[in-house]
Design a protein around this nucleic acid. Structure first.
Lengths: 107, 107
DNA sequence: TCGTAATATTGCAATATTACGATAATAGAA
DNA sequence: TTCTATTATCGTAATATTGCAATATTACGA
């Protein structure tokens, strides 16, 4: 037990759960918010900005990155990130279309 | 360690993370999808529908309910649920407004 | 009242997540 | 080359989540 039984769900449902998981931690929401508020790319000033250790921030960044929500590249010693807008919009569409058939009058 | 340091984030950010957590498990996404596809309220046929034990489904339902996304009432022996649309729309608004300032051209 | 159906709760085992110190890897500066 | 700044990875401790069997609770029908 303790393992999510992914195989009993459709691929679409697992996908939604996986992307939601990215937003399911305040550190990752903070990171995404900070990125979205900058004009262009940001580097790892997130450590000072948020107040977690560098290792932890790096870990969260890789979770966000694995979900496809980041574009990153090295610029000298620094690595710069910005939001992968296409992927994010994909998530919005998935989520928003999810409840289109909702009937509002019941209970 | 292993504890999310909620106190270092704003209330707004914690709120987004908390609601996202509801969608961060495929069982809960399935439940919400099933509810949204029914005309009115549903009862606990979710156990057969999804294929988890009754205890597990009940647990997931309470997570969804605690987030304010469900309206439930007893109808005889059965408890019937439907989506709390106001609360769901609140989540959509929170999330969607979150990235309004996103600049798309970088990297 | 007693039995039964439906849902909730409890307790526990297994796994996942979070956080951080230590260390590694990489690239520019001295 | 050596030093330093920046980011990634590893190892580990603490906590959270998932899932289920067993049990409790609640409401109806006989």
């Amino acid at each position: 037990m303790g393992v999510t039984k992914r195989f009993i769900y459709t691929e679409n449902i697992n996908e939604i759960a996986n992307i939601a998981k990215v937003f399911a931690h305040p550190a990752r929401v903070s990171i995404l918010k900070y990125i979205s508020e900058q004009e262009g790319c940001i580097c790892n000033d997130l450590v000072d900005e948020i107040g977690l250790s560098q290792a932890t921030i790096s870990q969260h960044l890789s979770v966000i990155g694995d979900a496809g929500l980041l574009k990153g590249r090295f610029e000298g010693k620094k690595k710069c990130y910005c939001l992968n807008l296409e992927r994010f919009e994909e998530f919005q569409i998935l989520l928003n279309s999810f409840f289109n058939k909702t009937t509002s009058n019941c209970c």
